[in-house]
């Protein structure tokens, strides 16, 4: 479970202060698929960065799987990111000089994991996204949709509990976007909690729950998905709404 209580984040320059998040509260239950929407500058990326331990926050409390993140040293945060969180980026963020196999291998290399186990995981992850045959290709030799699937394989190879996606379809055409979305849904079906930042209301509607951010806070204009949920998810969703 991911729980943020009264999280605030202010970006300061010499002249101005920007409140990216203001007393932000959110609880995400295990297995949920949440879409975060909102206008540019509303704090979506800041929220995702803090949720993914990429950035610190100024005040508040953040519990990830029961562990208080506040004040954790960089090493522990890196370890948590590596073991519990998978990232999918808008521009894929594949390493251009490494082939697909080595790209998926990147997060696994930061674990004390033998070469054999890493190979099995990489092959399995690539198979899951349908790119086994492209293991020796360079990212530039793949289409945008394929590159994003590699990024998803990279995120999944480490068996994360949380998958954070930042505009995962932002650079894809509609057909590829739909394929990626279907892939995310199937991953979510396997029990991985997904938080997805998107501008696309179509995609957002496919999530279990929508969070609408405005000026660093969850807005009252919050939308709720219209897709059918199973009983458990509906209950957890309702509990979450109460918490917000």
């Amino acid at each position: 479970m991911l729980k943020m209580s009264n999280i605030s984040k202010i970006f300061r320059t010499r002249l101005i202060e920007t409140h990216a998040l203001r007393s932000f509260n959110l609880t995400v239950n295990d297995g949920e698929f949440i879409a975060v929407t909102g206008p540019s500058g509303s704090g979506k990326t800041t929220f995702l960065n803090i949720a993914g331990l990429l950035e610190d926050f100024d005040t508040g409390q953040y519990m990830l799987d029961g562990e208080d993140i506040s004040g954790l040293p960089d090493k522990s945060r890196s370890k948590l990111r590596n073991e519990k969180i998978g990232f999918i980026f808008q521009s894929f963020n594949l390493i251009p000089d490494l082939n697909i196999f080595d790209n998926v291998d990147v997060p696994l290399r930061y674990r004390d994991m033998g070469a054999g186990e890493r190979k099995d995981r990489i092959e399995s992850a690539l198979e899951n996204v349908g790119l086994s045959s492209r293991a020796k290709h360079l990212p530039a030799e793949l289409s945008g949709g394929q590159q994003q699937r590699v990024a998803i394989a990279r995120a999944l190879a480490g068996s994360p509990r949380f998958l954070l996606a930042d505009e995962p379809t932002g650079n894809l055409d509609s057909l590829m976007a739909r394929q990626v979305m279907e892939l995310l849904e199937s991953i979510n079906d396997q029990g991985v909690t997904i938080i997805m930042v998107t501008h696309d209301p179509e995609l957002a509607r496919r999530a279990h729950r929508n969070i609408y951010l405005l000026d660093g806070q969850i807005s009252d204009l919050e939308e709720v998905t219209q897709l059918p949920l199973n009983q458990n998810q509906s209950q957890s969703q309702r509990a979450d709404h109460a918490a917000i």
Binding site: L54, D74, K75, S78, K79, R81, N82, N93, V106, Y110
Partner: peptide, 11 residues
């Protein structure tokens, strides 16, 4: 990206 994927400063 490497840091986001879990690389420590040492890595």
């Amino acid at each position: 990206t490497r840091r986001a994927l879990g690389a420590q400063k040492f890595h």
